[in-house]
């Protein structure tokens, strides 16, 4: 079973599975609702943005079987567009975020059409190379302001009502965005479309022989994942009032892979747990400079060698054993 740990196990008891997912969702939402009273809100907002980013990434690898090593391009491009829209065009934050999401969706269509022409390892290399192309474009394009990035982006008023300059209002706005994205991903996974995706991941020739245009399904999954990653990036740019090269760099693409791997590839809640784990770690190790990179790399190695199911994968396996035993 560990052989293909990133593939979620077929559930033997869909009713119990759905009950577990509902309960876990309620617990998660309860924690997020009270979190800003306990923890510094900016920290949780950052983690929520990355959690959505990781969930979007996981949609592609966990349920489509496609490992993208270039997801930073969607996070970063959407961040630039939404920051530019909010600052230079003076658009309200929700419209700026939608503009960023739309931009990353378009980018997803363009890159997806190229990337899905190859599979497996080639797919990872192609997405990485395309993301590097986007990185160099971001370095050179005038509107991104190169090394400086787009700074002092106004947060503005969401829907003309909620003043996002207050950290608490901003927090619940981010939470609402995250929840909408999370539920959309949940819905996609459990829809007939999601089932076809799983079928393609398990056995593509067979899915083709059943009459599915697998290319189209893969492209759709790629575009959805890109758009949702963009939603995370656009929101992040408004929260931190900054869009910079960090978010388009390849190390960011690696970071989201790490978050998802740590939390559990192909699990529903794993990416959220992984994002919080990595962001917390980053918080403590940030001042140590390159030690953070070393730690990240070491976690990669350990996870691949000994912990392929990730935190939630192990937890779910344990719950399942207990239910059977």
């Amino acid at each position: 079973m560990a052989d293909d740990a990133y593939k979620p196990r077929a559930s033997h008891d869909p009713v119990a599975e759905a009950r577990y997912e509902r309960r876990a969702f309620v617990v998660m939402m309860a924690l997020f609702l009270v979190a800003p009273m306990v923890v510094y809100p900016v920290f949780v907002m950052k983690a929520l943005c990355f959690a959505l980013f990781a969930c979007a990434f996981n949609l592609l690898i966990g349920f489509g079987g496609l490992l993208s090593f270039g997801h930073a391009m969607f996070l970063g491009a959407a961040g630039y567009v939404s920051a530019h829209a909010a600052k230079e065009w003076g658009l309200p934050p929700e419209i700026a975020i939608l503009a960023g999401t739309a931009a990353s969706t378009v980018l997803g269509v363009l890159t997806g059409l190229l990337a899905i022409r190859r599979q497996g390892i080639y797919f990872a290399m192609i997405t990485l190379a395309l993301a590097q192309l986007v990185f160099f474009l971001a370095v050179q394009a005038p509107f991104t302001h190169g090394e400086d990035g787009i700074q002092a982006v106004p947060r503005g008023k969401a829907l003309g009502l909620f003043d996002l300059s207050s950290p608490y209002v901003m927090y619940y706005f981010v939470l609402a965005t995250f929840t909408a994205g999370f539920l959309l991903i949940y819905r996609i996974i459990h829809s007939p479309f999601g089932q076809v995706l799983k079928a393609i991941r398990e056995n593509e020739p067979r899915a083709i022989s059943l009459g599915y245009r697998t290319e189209r399904y893969k492209l759709a999954a790629f575009v959805l994942s890109a758009g949702l990653a963009g939603l995370a990036g656009a929101t992040k740019a408004i929260v931190f009032q900054l869009a910079s090269l960090t978010d388009v760099h390849w190390s960011m693409s690696g970071e989201v892979v790490l978050m998802t791997l740590v939390g559990g590839l192909g699990t529903i809640f794993g990416p959220v747990v992984g994002a919080f784990a990595i962001i917390t770690m980053e918080n403590y190790l940030a001042e140590l400079g390159s030690w953070f990179t070393i730690t990240q790399g070491a976690i990669f190695v350990v996870c691949v060698l000994a912990f392929r199911r990730g935190i939630m994968g192990e937890l779910e396996a344990w719950l399942r054993r207990r239910r059977i035993g």
């Binding site: 490992l67 090593f69 390892i121 791997l261 790399g297 070491a298 996870c303 691949v304």
Partner: peptide, 22 residues
């Protein structure tokens, strides 16, 4: 799955480059 080899060597690259930069 071959993708794990990619992930492992990516992690190793981070470790090696981090140590040398340190």
């Amino acid at each position: 799955d071959h993708l794990y080899g990619l992930l492992l060597t990516f992690g190793l690259a981070l470790v090696i480059q981090g140590v040398f930069r340190n």
